[in-house]
Design a protein around this nucleic acid. Sequence first.
DNA 1: AGTCCTTTGAAGTAG
DNA 2: CTACTTCAAAGGACT
Length: 312
Amino acid sequence: MDDGMKHQDPGMYKGSAYSGYPFLMLSDPYLPNGSMSPLSNKVPVVQPSHGVHPLTPLIPYSNDHFSHGSHSPHLPADINQKQGVHRPSQTSDIPGFYPLPPSGVGQITPSMGWQSQSVYPLPSCGFRQPYSSALSAGASFSRFPHPLMLGSGMHTTGIPHPAIVPHSGKQEMEHYDRNMKPQPEPKREKEAKKPTIKKPLNAFMLYMKEMRAKVIAECTLKESAAINQILGRRWHALSREEQAKYYELARKERQLHMQLYPGWSARDNYGKKKRRTREKQQDSNSGGKRSAFGTYKEKDAVPAQFLPMEVL
DNA sequence: AGTCCTTTGAAGTAG
DNA sequence: CTACTTCAAAGGACT
């Protein structure tokens, strides 16, 4: 598309205007040879750890295609660490996040153990879960046009579908996720707006969801950009089998998503978030990795000597 | 309130 | 087909 116009000046952020994000290089103790992970020096790195937290299996790869006895060292742990956010207890009999339509789910049925058996288990308390906000949102989602959905934006199970979010998306989600207020239900007047069907999560996103809380606990970090860098490195450090679990999960996610929203296209969500124009992808980034806003600025990394000892 | 940061992967667009 | 762009999650920082 309009290549030339979608560019931003990297220095615009890193150097000056966005100087709030001079990422540092932190070593991740979980990675070999002290792999470095850039972290923001603004991150309160030495936050008090919240101590032991319960682990909740997010993705119990019990018996599926990838149960070759290999067990991920990274136990699924996706705990909401946000000051004891209370979540309305989920009914544990909800089958899954992508409940199957009453019919026509042919091929994916055999492997649906992952689903009914809670690839995305619905914890009875406090733990974060994929799409939890959508689920927690209760009846506030509405007007989803999909035939499988009930009139109020719920699936036939009566559960609002995780991939469906109000048009304003994140903000509203965060209402549920972060504040967990009773949420006096969005204005009915806004019902004219069509909810957004989100993209299914890819393998890495699923991995991030699962591992985020663990990394946060270990590194006492909260800044997602820094966490994600660590997660990216750990992702690469995963064995093929371990990664394969997530690829398979993602594949099922996509399948289910396709079944639930046959006409949906990722393009539907294009342009919903206004992004800054970015700099043209330069081929000569000397092996630089891809970044949504150009190449990573490892050169901006602050020497590790400026980092707290505990993260080194 | 909205955007950026950061990651990878999937899918879209442009040429 | 290739190269590039956008979005998915997350939450603090920033505008």
